[in-house]
Amino acid sequence: MFRSDPLEDDLQDTTMRDAFAARASALLDTDPRLAVVLADISTDKFRDAAAAHPHRVVNVGIREQLLVGAAGGLALAGLRPIAHTYAPFLVERAFEQIKLDFEHQGTSGILVSVGASYDWAEGSFTHFSPRDVALFDTLPGWRVVVPGHAAEVPRLLDEAVRSDEGVYMRLSLRCNPAPHHTSGGGLTVLREGRNATVVAVGPVLDNVLAATSGFDVTVAYTNTPRPFDEHGLRQLAAGTGDTVVVVEPYLEGTSAWLVSRALADRPHRLLSIGVGREELRRYGTADEHERLHGLDPNGIRHRVRDFLDPITASR
């Protein structure tokens, strides 16, 4: 049976998108510099805000090039724009607009996506965007925030609105059972060990904790993978034999270049776990896609175990 709304989850009282819309609406009441641009996605959640601030909550219809271009123009006029829609339409479809209508203008804004890598699994690849963070790595200076829980969203949004930098906020229906607030976006240690530093980004944390149960590894969490906490990683890796695992809820290996840069002066080992590059051409559920990509606890556990004990794994 199809879900009536692919961006809703009956098991979550408040989704990240709910939290975003509520906080953005509240911020619109207090910050006259803030504007929200929509492209027919989430308009119901901004109905009251649009009524209260008709000139600062704008729905351009299903026009994603205009969504980003108009947000860029709002920034040129001195406002702090938030542009919001599905990740593939926001980032991949309109990528040249992000590059030219913000970066090349010398301005910035906040881009907030939903859908993530496979939230609406039955919607298929057209609504998946596992490559979005990798695309942002081609742009200098963008902060990327990947909340792991709806309760992490308000603070991250507050920081984004207060900032003058470009911020990409990647919202998902995938989530951890509890929020974890990080200090300044840095790596937060949740478990200490000696054989590896395992970095978990956003909503994969719960799976990582389950997968590494009984392993002698450090588990560190971040919901702000850009800028990547290279200093924190160096410190943690030094205590685990410079052996690092990064588990990301988007394209596998996206952060590998940053780990390499952080540890360039030291011999090190890295295992990257994330969403595979190939299009699966499968429907089903997000849980099933998570399993197919090896991002479920069992998949992560097997890959980490084999990485830490390659001799045993090769037998």
Partner: peptide
């Protein structure tokens, strides 16, 4: 320089001037 950017940006600037 890249064509098709000025008018969407102009829409945003016009919206911004109206909002402010």
């Amino acid at each position: 320089g890249s064509l098709g950017h000025g008018l969407p940006l102009g829409v945003g600037v016009a919206l911004g001037l109206r909002a402010t």
